[in-house]
């Protein structure tokens, strides 16, 4: 899965959970400052991403995912199977 494909899929998850239009979920956006995703919603996003991409996002790592791009990079490095 390419980073672009991960972004598309990740943006879809964010829309599902937060209602934010997927088109707005771009790599440069900050979750808290730009997208208004609070810390509780962020936990939901992370859990959904774990399920969708078959990865684990430890709490320590989650703290460092400030932007959508951070999340996409993390998912890519965590080794996405499909």
């Amino acid at each position: 899965m390419s980073n672009d494909e991960i972004l598309t899929e990740f943006a879809r998850l964010v829309q599902e959970i937060t209602g934010i239009n997927a088109a707005q979920v771009t790599a440069d956006k900050s979750f808290t400052n730009d997208l208004d995703v609070d810390s509780l919603s962020m936990v939901e996003v992370a859990t959904a991403a774990e399920d969708r991409f078959g990865i684990a996002i430890p709490d320590d790592a989650l703290k460092n995912l400030k932007t959508v791009g951070d999340a996409v990079d993390f998912i890519a490095k965590a080794g996405v199977a499909a």
């Binding site: 810390s39 509780l40 919603s41 936990v43 939901e44 859990t47």
Partner: peptide
Amino acid sequence: ARRVSPFTVP
């Protein structure tokens, strides 16, 4: 437990 919603308490 990890799938329990963080919004459960509120």
